[in-house]
């Protein structure tokens, strides 16, 4: 059997909100390592990888590896029924075709359970090679979300360029152009407000803003976002999840042909 218990149930709610519009169905893999998921969007342009390590849960039991095929919109519907302070338990017995979500209020005076039917999903698991990135930008996640939202009112694509000057986000559209430059800034009172740019090589890549805005739905999970860029490679937009793991979004660039 498989069982996990998470006192901070709101984390799972936030994870679902971050991915439910990007991915329709996904296999959630449960192993001794933790609870993980990898899936592509329906156009195979973006890939999301989620890991919640077993040590991060208050209770985690996985007798044997299982893969649970889940429709994310349906899982999101169920998790929306959990209160923000609720303790969440997820349970699946071997050989059954459903998974149970149990929500307990902090004072234990309300206990709900929801059973979700599992489905067979024929998904490809992609191997993500280790890469040395030309540039890695760490910045406040809310700032990144704001930039993507602002630029998408002007254009459909964003050019992200990292130079010694900083990181520049540019777009162009029918009404004109926009450029937003963020410089390295480590002299802030709070580390979560810092912008840190590690650059090995200058890099400039073009991406669809629609996807960036979708990734930014993970903003409530982490105060900082890490953007890793290399020429002619998918960008990695990573949100760390407390002490538990991460949600990583990979987005294929637009390349001039």
């Amino acid at each position: 059997m498989f069982e996990l218990r998470l006192e901070q149930g709101s984390l799972l709610k936030k994870v679902m909100e971050a991915i439910k519009d990007l991915v329709n169905d996904a296999n959630f893999d449960c192993s001794a390592t933790g609870f993980s998921m990898q899936a592509m969007d329906s156009s195979h342009v973006a890939l999301v990888a989620l890991l919640l390590r077993s040590e991060g849960f208050e209770h985690y039991r996985c007798d044997r590896n299982i893969s649970m095929g889940i429709n994310l919109a349906n899982m999101a519907k169920i998790l929306k029924c959990a209160g923000n302070d609720d303790i969440v338990t997820v349970k699946a017995d071997d050989g059954t075709d459903s998974v149970t979500f149990m929500f307990e209020s902090p004072t234990q005076d309300k206990i709900s359970d929801f059973e979700l039917k599992l489905m067979d999903i024929d998904s490809e698991h992609l191997g993500i090679p280790e890469a040395e990135y030309d540039a890695i930008v760490r910045m406040p996640s809310a700032e990144f979300a704001r930039i993507c939202k602002d630029l998408s009112s002007i254009g459909d694509t964003v050019v992200i360029s990292v130079t010694k000057e900083g990181v520049k986000f540019s777009t162009r559209g029918d009404i004109g152009t926009a450029n937003i430059v963020c410089r390295q800034n480590t002299s802030v009172d709070k580390p979560e407000e810092a912008t840190i740019i590690e650059m090995k090589e200058m890099v400039s890549l073009t991406f669809a803003l629609r996807y960036m805005n979708s990734f930014a739905k993970a903003t409530p999970l982490a105060s900082q976002v890490t953007i890793s860029l290399s020429s002619d490679l998918p960008v990695v937009v990573e949100y760390k999840i407390a002490e538990m793991g991460y949600i990583r979004f990979y987005l294929a660039p637009k390349i001039e042909e």
Binding site: L126, P234, A252, I255, E256
Partner: peptide, 14 residues
């Protein structure tokens, strides 16, 4: 013109 690439052209089935 910029062509949108697919993830599957960078990462392959494991």
């Amino acid at each position: 013109v910029n062509q949108q690439k697919q993830i599957t052209s960078f990462f392959t089935k494991s």
